[in-house]
């Protein structure tokens, strides 16, 4: 089975994701601001923040071990590598196989694991609290994600995202069945959890009552924090791309026109999902930590029903 996406295209797509990632965050922030009747910062504000961070010096906690320094490097690498596994502008399996949905989830989990370990390194209560909560939510999210992936993979017989996308084809909007709706619903429930947003997490504050992800980054500073921030942006766009690859991919089309069409479609899809996130963030309150399992339970039931519909 020779794939449709040459290695060069895969790498280009990956770089594209990294480059566009902060923009998505910026867009969501801007939309949130507008929804809250604020002016808000520009959509390119995350780029400015990153640029500033990479120029700054670092303040490192005196208790940290040698691992702490390298954590941002590894987290960023793992997250970006996950970006290489999602089809962005063209469906179909890659020419040389890299990884599938399971690998993608694995790489994201690796990044999360390393972040949590880094958070514990400084020996402060905030990092520990953030790590503990993050590692509580993550195991609950992962099975549901896996079931969502399976709900589409069972039909296609593969977990390779490009192949999944190709299997769904260009006319996906005609072929959607009840199972797909439910699976998509489950995915929408999971999205805030996976991207660290309300109602599961609040990316805007460092208050100890709310923080999960941000708490873990507290002791990072300068370029290290820049790497972690970039990783967060990338992770967000990779998750959104995963949703689009699973549920509304664009089919394989050759030539430059096809690529352009794919890029355009990608932009639209991400924008739609970003708008969804912004809407949710603006209209819901942050849940208590121990309400989160219940919230995820909704996703679990949706995913299970989707699977049941697919298999029975």
């Amino acid at each position: 089975m020779i794939g449709d996406r040459p290695l060069a295209l895969v790498l280009v797509e990956m770089i594209l994701l990294v480059l566009v990632g902060p923009l998505v965050t910026g867009t969501i922030q801007k939309m949130k601001a507008r929804l809250q009747c604020r002016q808000g910062a520009g959509v390119f504000q995350p780029y400015r923040d990153l640029a500033k961070l990479f120029r700054k010096g670092t303040v490192q906690a005196d208790t940290t071990s040698g691992f702490f320094w390298s954590i941002p490097v590894l987290v960023l690498a793992a997250t970006v590598a996950a970006g290489a596994l999602v089809p962005v502008i063209r469906a179909g399996p890659p020419a040389f196989p890299l990884g599938d949905a399971v690998m993608l989830l694995g790489l994201l989990a690796l990044a999360r694991f390393l972040t949590a370990v880094g958070a514990l390194d400084a020996g402060g209560a905030f990092g520990g609290m953030g790590a503990s909560r993050e590692m509580t939510i993550a195991p609950l999210v992962e099975p549901v994600l896996m079931m969502v992936v399976f709900s589409t993979a069972v039909a296609a017989g593969t977990t390779e995202l490009g192949a999944l996308a190709a299997h769904r084809g260009t006319s996906w909007f005609l072929a959607w069945r009840a199972a797909d709706f439910l699976g998509f619903a489950a995915m929408l429930v999971l999205l805030p959890a996976e991207t660290g947003r309300i109602p599961v997490d609040n990316p805007d504050t460092h208050l100890e009552l709310t923080m999960l992800h941000e708490g873990m980054l507290l002791e990072h500073s300068g370029p290290g924090f820049g790497c972690m921030a970039l990783a967060s942006h990338t992770r967000q766009i990779v998750t959104l791309s995963l949703v689009s690859a699973l549920f509304f991919p664009i089919g394989p089309a050759g030539g430059a026109a096809g690529l352009l069409l794919g890029a355009g479609a990608f932009a639209v899809k991400i924008l739609v999902l970003a708008t969804f996130l912004a809407l949710v963030e603006s209209s819901y309150a942050k849940l208590r930590l121990f309400r989160v399992p219940q919230y995820l339970g909704v996703g679990f039931v949706c995913a299970l029903t989707a699977l049941a519909l697919r298999i029975l």
Partner: peptide, 24 residues
């Protein structure tokens, strides 16, 4: 990617590194 990230991690310019107690 780690190699590239390593470059980023070092920072764009050689900025000072400081050691301080953990924030509590």
């Amino acid at each position: 990617l780690s190699a590239i990230a390593l470059l980023l991690r070092r920072g764009v310019r050689r900025a000072p590194q400081r050691v301080a107690p953990t924030w509590t």
